[in-house]
Design a protein around this nucleic acid. Sequence first.
DNA 1: TTCTATTGTAACATTTTGTTACAATAATAA
DNA 2: TTATTATTGTAACAAAATGTTACAATAGAA
Lengths: 243, 243
Amino acid sequence: MSHQSPDAIGPDGAGYLPGLALDAVIFGFHENQLRILLLEYRNTGLFALPGGFIREHEDLNAAARRMLAERTGLSDIYLEQFYVFGDQARYDPEPMRSIMRANGLTPTDNHWLLRRFVSVGYYALVDFTKAVPRPDALSDSCDWYDLNRLPALMQDHQAIVQKALETLRINLDRKLVEWAASLLPDTFTMAELQSLYETILNEKLHRSGFQRKMLSLGVLERIDKKYTGGAHKAPYVYRFVAG
Amino acid sequence: MSHQSPDAIGPDGAGYLPGLALDAVIFGFHENQLRILLLEYRNTGLFALPGGFIREHEDLNAAARRMLAERTGLSDIYLEQFYVFGDQARYDPEPMRSIMRANGLTPTDNHWLLRRFVSVGYYALVDFTKAVPRPDALSDSCDWYDLNRLPALMQDHQAIVQKALETLRINLDRKLVEWAASLLPDTFTMAELQSLYETILNEKLHRSGFQRKMLSLGVLERIDKKYTGGAHKAPYVYRFVAG
DNA sequence: TTCTATTGTAACATTTTGTTACAATAATAA
DNA sequence: TTATTATTGTAACAAAATGTTACAATAGAA
């Protein structure tokens, strides 16, 4: 689970559902790499997934949307639950204690933030070019990190990222159009689309077959040509159209 | 969410995680039909999915296993999370109040069982011939109901069943072997396996192609013939072998 | 012995996927 | 202007997977 401003929440967690949190793996795609948003906590060097809590009169999914909007500035985000992390062993209070101390707080032993949390994992897909990452009240930075070069993460957040990635791979074929529309800019080349596919699957695909398959889906509209400045034929630029 | 003996739990829910529950859609396969386990509450005519709560020092998935063992007598069950139901609107305290009254309890207005719950949905797959359904402390019966002829269910339990079914359909191809091994008896005919497949997908498949595909998976071992008494060729009986 | 329903599998057609090949072309260099 | 280069779009063919039809093999009943 993760964290918001304690003064916004109150010292006893009043107004929020107790023991329940959510963590989000927010994916973006840039320079042919999958990246995720991470928070770095003040004075601690600890990295964590963006997370949040659920208000007493708020739907669970609405809480996730609210938190995502706070972290990215985007209100219309593709997001989905993928797993609930509910092992009791996952909650080690020590990192949270450090973070609170680093923020000038002196947590009591049974401070609500230090108790056990069950956390609902969400993954979100955002257009890298549109998101404006914003740190939360306890963190210095909120930034993109290449999935292949993540820093060490708090608690079980590494496992959460891994599970999110597995979920992406399993569902890619079924969800491709929705996902690509969320992760890519409005227009893109076939090579960019293929690169996204390859990055998620972590394997190379045959160019010819990929193009044939994508075009046969009937969801791509060819717009015009893109002159990249490279010494070669200019690729077409596509956009998704409602199927 | 669902319910256990209130005296086993205590009137204030002490010893259990607050606000968090789990509901299970327990599937069995019998006479070419998918069935699920439902509880019928004493003196109320209300039907509900088996559910439970999480002990303070218990892993979430362990709580699900404990509850499934209590309801079916089986300890080694295939089960998986599929969704968290966290809308605030889902929790209507009225049915629960009826159930408590029908059990001779006089619930206070803010009794913990009447407050909002977020519930983790699990589906489980069991061998119909091995499960021994047992009611919980508040219910009269725990029994199998044909998926096509379910009684009216409490709260949003109908939607939970629907979502579980969708999850089955989406994942059938990927999980077939695990699932069939859980749902079917140790040995079965090709027709039975096909019937299971058809029932989950809710569509007819071609017999020839189905047989070819199943055999090509290399996970079926042909045991011997089954003389059913029917006036026709006797089918082979198969069993799954580790791939 | 004939008949019926069902099974196991072969045979063929169709579709999808994998692979190779090649012409088209945008910039660059000669 | 004319090669040269890297990349693109698509055709062409091969291989594999899937859809469909057909038929011989039976276990029992008539």
